[in-house]
Amino acid sequence: MAKLDGKVALITGGTSGIGIATAKLFVAEGAHVYVTGRRREKVEEAVRTLGTSSTGVQGDVANMADLDRLFKQIGEEKGKLDIVFANAGAAEFAPFGSVEEAHFDRMFDGNVKSLLFSAQKALPLMTAGGSIVLMSSVVGSKGLPANTVYAATKAAIRSFARTWTTDLKERGIRVNAVSPGPIDTEGLRELLGDTPEGRKRKDSFGQIVPLGRVGNPDEIARAVLFLASEDSSYVAGAELFVDGGMGQI
C-alpha cells in the first residue's frame, strides 16, 4: 500500500524546485495533490507533468482573496485536506545597516504572513490526524552574512511548528518544519545568477557543507514525505534538518 493512498495534499509553490519534486513523490505515493503558483503557464506545466492525480490553482499565497478562492475550490472538489506543505517563499539578501523597509516587508509578507494564512485558512478542511509541513531553512539557525531579514523569517517559521503543535493538539494535527541547506533549484540559480560567476558561487556552497556538495530537490521531497506520512506519526513540533550537516557542525 502506498504511503499516501486516499490523501488530499496541498503544496504551495508547487510548480518548481522542491515543490514539484515533492508533488511528484506525493502522487507516486497515492495522493491527489493541489499545487499553487503565481504563473499560470508554470501551473499548467506542473499539472501536465503530474497527471490526473493533480490539480493546479494559479494564485499568490500572499493575497488573501487568492487563498480564499483556493480553499473554496478544494472544499467543493474534495471536501477535505489531509496534508499541507507550506513551501512557497522567496529569498533576498541585505546586510544589516542597509536593510530597507520594502525589503523587510517583502520578506515577512512573502515568507511569514503568507505561510501563516495558508495554513490557517486550510484548518477548516483538515482532517483529524492531518499533517502540516512548513518550509524553514538552515539559515534560521545560522549567523550567515547579509541574511538579517531572510533568516529571521525562517526562524519565525520554525517557531510556528512549536506553537501550532500545542494549538492543534486536540485535533491531532501534527506540525513540523523541514530546514534544507543549499539546494540546487531554479530559484537558487535565479538568485545567484545563471552565469559562470553565479555557478561558481553555487558550487562554493559545497565548501561550507560538511558533505561537500549542494543538495537536490528529491532529497528534500523524501524528508517532506516522511513528515507528511504515518512514518512520522509520533513526530510533532520538530525541525528536520536536511542540510548535509551544515546546521549541525
Rank of each mutant, 00 (worst) to 15 (best):
A223S: 14
G247V: 02
I208P: 00
D203P: 00
L227T: 05
Y234A: 09
M246R: 11
V214C: 00
E230V: 03
K202G: 01
D231G: 07
G206Q: 01
A238Y: 05
R213M: 04
M246T: 06
Y234I: 06
Y234D: 02
D194R: 07
Y234M: 13
G244F: 05
V224Y: 13
P210F: 01
G215D: 06
V224E: 11
G215I: 00
M246N: 03
M246D: 01
F226I: 12
R213K: 14
Q248F: 05
G212E: 04
Q207S: 11
Q248R: 14
G247E: 12
R222F: 00
F226G: 10
S229E: 06
V209E: 07
G247Q: 12
V242H: 08
L211T: 06
V214Y: 03
V224C: 09
A223E: 07
G247K: 11
P217L: 06
G198N: 09
N216D: 03
G245P: 14
E230Y: 05
V242R: 09
M246Y: 02
F205R: 00
E197T: 10
D194F: 03
A238E: 14
R201C: 01
T195N: 13
D203F: 00
A221D: 03
S232R: 07
D194W: 05
A223Y: 09
L227Q: 07
R201T: 06
F226D: 11
A221V: 08
E219H: 13
L227R: 04
E219K: 10
F205L: 02
Q207A: 11
G206V: 03
V224T: 11
T195H: 07
V235W: 11
R201W: 02
R213Y: 09
M246H: 05
N216A: 08
D218Q: 10
I208E: 05
S204N: 10
A228T: 04
V209D: 04
G245Y: 12
Q207V: 01
A228P: 00
F226T: 09
S233A: 15
D203T: 02
E219P: 08
L225K: 13
G212W: 00
V209N: 08
I208S: 04
K200V: 01
E239G: 09
E230K: 15
V209Y: 02
F226E: 15
R201P: 01
L225W: 11
D218N: 10
E239S: 14
A223T: 09
D231A: 08
R199A: 04
G244Y: 07
E197K: 15
T195I: 02
Q248M: 14
V235Y: 12
I208Q: 06
R222A: 09
P217C: 07
L227G: 02
G247T: 05
K202R: 15
G237K: 11
V235L: 15
K202W: 07
F241Y: 12
A223F: 09
F205M: 06
P196I: 11
V214P: 00
G245M: 12
L225Y: 09
G245K: 15
A236H: 13
E219V: 04
S204K: 10
E230H: 11
P210D: 07
R222N: 10
D203R: 14
V235N: 06
D194T: 03
L240W: 11
Q248K: 14
K200Y: 02
P210S: 08
E230M: 08
G198K: 05
